[in-house]
Design a protein around this nucleic acid. Structure first.
Lengths: 328, 328
DNA sequence: TTGTACGCGTTATCAG
DNA sequence: CTGATAACGCGTACAA
């Protein structure tokens, strides 16, 4: 910056002002500075700025369970788009669905002094919670409407959504329901969805049968396998709720392969509305969840905090919608 | 850090050393520092470190055309995984397929002084090139095997891959080929693929017919539309090469819907091996491209430069493979 | 409106 | 192996 100042024949301070608060310098100074900046290809150093004003590093961070899941990509896109308008860039990390890795990532990210942190996960190790508390920056959790958030929340209720979808199945007349979820051991969202399923069964006065609840990884093959396994074991099952968008498609394709009629032989519902779902010969009933909007609003809340709003901000429920298609 | 030093009763310098080069301090000092760090929940400030040693900000950056495209996600996953082993985090941005946005992002990123930059695009505005030159950091281009790279390249040849796939079609006996590509105006990869298609036609002594080359966006619907449009116009077309993985699936589903036999009525080949491709009733012939590995190796090259290797490093060609399935 | 002095937290350097 | 010192590039606070 000093070099720019020399070239423009003003002080370094004027350069700083010309760049950050152009209206505070005379037009002449501004012009000279801009000219010098252009000629030299000067790129400001935010490290130095952030050192002085830690709340304005213009860098935010986000951690998702997996970068490869298109659902998360949608949300991340929302975050980056919204932040970029304010000149804030995003550091992105991937916890591989592990709370320990999340903690380690949080530590690594905080070292860069981000001005905000978006976390998809809502369960954290004690170490992670401590880091977050001490960081003194806005933290936005987006994976679930948590009852006791670290700070801010923008999400939907996994419980309510799963319950609504199960309720939809019951409303359509299905009575022998099964549930194929993702591993719930380390995953609050998975647990909540399972809880929603049970709650809807209870509401419908249907018995809960543990053997009709399966957990699998999120692949096509697992979906197909789960379908076959369930129907082999309990031929009377008339509807299956898959909480993985991919597993539902896998199951549907398996039905096609075997010539099984959906929804006559068995109805299929999905939690995530995976793009292919609606294009299959029998489009799959699924939940619409505004993934992009979650990211966008998360970024907005972060910006609100950065603008000085330190008051309590209530959780934002973006909601969901059951999209009925031919598979149920 | 000063506080840690006080608590551990050593100098700040010893703390710095204990954290970065533990073998350079006595076991006793190390122990005391670690204890203090743990007790205080100290998180080092990399901004300050980066200010002093700009080449070790422990922050890298990557720009992809779209965050939502699963192909790019795979590569990004490779980059983050490889960098994380060295404690380097990733800033991620999205150019929305625009060179101007890319330039703007590069500028924004450089302000954070990343120690390396991964770019999917291989065509850049003059402004972007200038920024990259002046930045003095390793730049890795990964979208195509460019002839005149900015610095380092890890990729495959879009030209060769498209040519190989077209050659495969010709080898299978198809003679009336059509090509459905993505918009090529601002996209080198798209242009190269189209060039590969033409080159294979020439090699096979087949005429090139402009009206059989269509450009569409990458949606299911566009794929279906392109298919219908081509076959309506030129019923003799016996094979279509889609360079979007999604468009190929869309077209295939449209065939199913209309009861068109693939590959009897028309063969379908895809550039990208989109996960669903292999699961359809008629699995789609596609190119296998090691997306994750591209990211991994890009990160490795970056690390090599950071380790002091300033020599010329030749482009890394990760290659590709034609996966023949029933659609051709 | 513009400039000066100082400090942010860390590391390179050099002396002990 | 350890410590003192200066410096990285910018922003705050104050003064001109």
């Amino acid at each position: 910056m000093t070099e720019v100042a020399l070239r423009a024949k003003v002080s370094a301070m004027s350069v700083s002002r010309a760049l950050r608060t152009p209206h505070q310098v005379s037009p002449e100074t501004l012009r000279r500075v801009q000219k010098a900046v252009r000629e030299m290809g000067y790129v400001p150093n935010r490290l130095a700025g952030g050192l002085k004003a830690p709340s304005r590093t213009q860098l935010a961070a986000a951690i998702v369970p997996s970068l490869q899941n298109s659902l998360f990509s949608g949300t991340i896109q929302g975050v980056t788009d919204a932040l970029r308008k304010k000149g804030i860039n995003l550091m992105l990390g991937d916890s591989h669905y592990s709370h320990e890795e999340e903690e380690s990532l949080i530590g690594a990210f905080l070292a860069h002094r981000p001005c905000g942190l978006v976390l998809h996960d809502t369960a954290h190790t004690p170490g992670a919670r401590r880091l977050l508390r001490n960081a003194g920056i806005p933290v936005i959790e987006i994976g679930n409407l948590v009852p006791r958030p670290v700070d801010l929340v923008v999400s939907y209720s996994n419980f309510a959504a799963a319950k609504a979808m199960t309720g939809h199945l019951i409303g359509r007349g299905y009575r022998q329901l099964a549930f194929v979820g993702l591993p719930s051991a380390d995953n609050e969202r998975s647990k909540e969805r399972q809880r929603g399923f049970r709650a809807a069964l209870a509401d419908g006065h249907l018995p809960y049968d543990e053997t009709r609840v399966i957990e699998t990884d999120g692949s096509f093959e697992s979906g197909a396998r789960a379908l076959v396994q369930l129907l082999d074991m309990r031929p009377r099952i008339d509807a299956i709720f898959f909480t993985g968008g991919v597993t539902a498609v896998g199951a549907m394709m398996e039905c096609t392969r075997r010539g099984w009629d959906v929804p006559k032989k068995v109805a299929i519902a999905a939690f995530d509305d995976w793009p292919v779902s609606r294009l299959l010969k029998t489009p799959i009933t699924a939940l619409e969840i505004p993934r992009y909007q979650i990211g966008e609003r998360a970024a907005e809340l972060m910006l609100r905090r950065l603008d000085g709003d330190h008051g309590r901000i209530p959780p934002v429920d973006v909601g969901f919608r059951v999209i009925e298609r031919q598979s149920t």
